[in-house]
């Protein structure tokens, strides 16, 4: 074998090569992507935020020139907090999110459990059940608006039921306050059960089969195995599903716009829709800014709790694995 010393190592110089060499030093290189991403966050998220904080203290409506705005202390915050519409919308958001998430979790879990046990046709079920996730939310809103119309297919399908009960078969899904609320919850459940299904399914497929086999060999029944072995192992995935879906459900906006515009009356106004209307219909920018800040504080608290829950679950797992 010949020695490498005989081979000339081609020297490379010039400004680009030198820049490249400087950038590929570890202490520099490791921070390049960090600086890029943080820079983007600062430019697109942080600066607008600071701006909002400023505006939330102004007395200003967008239909007047910005120069006429003046600082007004906490008046916008007082206005938001004493606004019944805001509180009602917030309450409604939690009401929608609560029902929707519970349905999504229960149905998603059952479906994942059933699909996990299916041998033939598994792939087809998974493919079909995941479709709603990929459908654009606005299209979902549109689809349901079509299905919900008084002369629509849903009422046609419900005809046997409504004729037995003796009620008018033309249920006014979108113009009756209560029906409209459930119309939105149903559309949300239709779309997002696919996500909880996905999370639970990945949980089920990650279950270690030898543990379940061990339990079965030791004489545990199906139900006992599920309750004492599978469910505790799935707990972290359940936490994820609850956290992720709850966070998303509180943002509910698209189907409201597409289905009801918050109506009839204000019966389907979620907090996102309410704010949007305040700002874009009534030009109450400063009011909207203050409400945004309050919402941010509220949601951040919830998000931090959620992340804390997830991280606690993770550290618990790591500890268990280590021991």
């Amino acid at each position: 074998m010949t020695a490498l010393s005989g081979v000339e190592i081609r020297a490379r110089n010039g400004p680009f090569a030198r820049l490249g060499a400087w950038l590929s030093q570890e202490r520099v290189f490791r921070w390049i992507p960090f600086v890029l991403v943080e820079g983007t966050f600062i430019l697109v998220i942080i600066i607008p935020f600071l701006l909002t904080i400023y505006i939330s203290f102004l007395r200003w409506r967008a239909n007047r020139p910005f120069e006429q705005a003046y600082l007004s202390g906490f008046r916008n915050y007082e206005a938001v907090l004493s606004d019944t519409g805001f509180w009602a919308a917030l309450g409604r958001t939690f009401y929608f999110a609560g029902f929707a998430v519970v349905f999504e979790l229960v149905i998603g879990f059952l479906l994942a459990m059933l699909v996990h046990r299916v041998v033939r046709g598994r792939r087809i079920y998974i493919t079909v059940f995941l479709i709603p996730m990929m459908v654009v939310p606005v299209v979902v809103g549109y689809n349901f608006s079509m299905i919900y119309i008084d002369h629509g297919p849903l009422n046609q399908l419900l005809l046997p039921l409504t004729s037995i009960l003796g009620i008018d078969p033309r249920i006014r899904w979108l113009s009756d306050p209560l029906a409209a609320q459930w119309a939105i919850i149903l559309a949300d459940v239709w779309q997002w059960t696919s996500l909880t299904f996905l999370i639970f399914l990945s949980g089920f497929s990650a279950l270690p089969p030898q543990l379940i086999n061990a339990a079965r060999v030791m004489g545990a029944s199906r139900w006992q195995t599920f309750w004492w072995v599978e469910l505790p192992l799935l707990k972290p995935v359940i936490v994820i599903a609850v956290v992720v879906r709850s966070m998303e459900a509180l943002k509910l906006f698209d189907p409201v716009v597409l289905l009801t515009f918050g109506g009839p009356g204000t019966s389907t106004q979620t907090v996102a829709y309410y704010l949007w209307e305040q700002v874009w219909q009534f030009n109450k920018f400063a009011f909207g800014a203050a409400a945004s800040m309050l919402l941010l504080i509220l949601f951040s608290t919830l998000i931090f709790t959620g992340i804390w829950l997830m991280m606690r679950e993770r550290t618990r797992l790591d500890r268990e694995r280590a021991s």
């Binding site: 490791r30 921070w31 992507p33 960090f34 966050f41 697109v44 998220i45 600066i47 607008p48 935020f49 701006l51 909002t52 505006i55 966070m247 509180l250 943002k251 906006f253 907090v271 996102a272 704010l275 949007w276 700002v279 920018f285 909207g288 800014a289 945004s292 919402l295 941010l296 949601f299 951040s300 998000i303 959620g306 992340i307 997830m310 991280m311």
Partner: peptide
């Protein structure tokens, strides 16, 4: 391990912020 061990969780924060909350600031921005 840029940004420390919790950075990867914090990154998700941005995603969890409701879009309506950043919509108003962004519009004015």
């Amino acid at each position: 391990n840029v940004g420390g061990s919790t950075f990867r969780h914090m990154v998700l924060l941005v995603r969890m912020i409701p879009p309506i909350v950043i919509a108003i600031p962004l519009l004015m921005y």
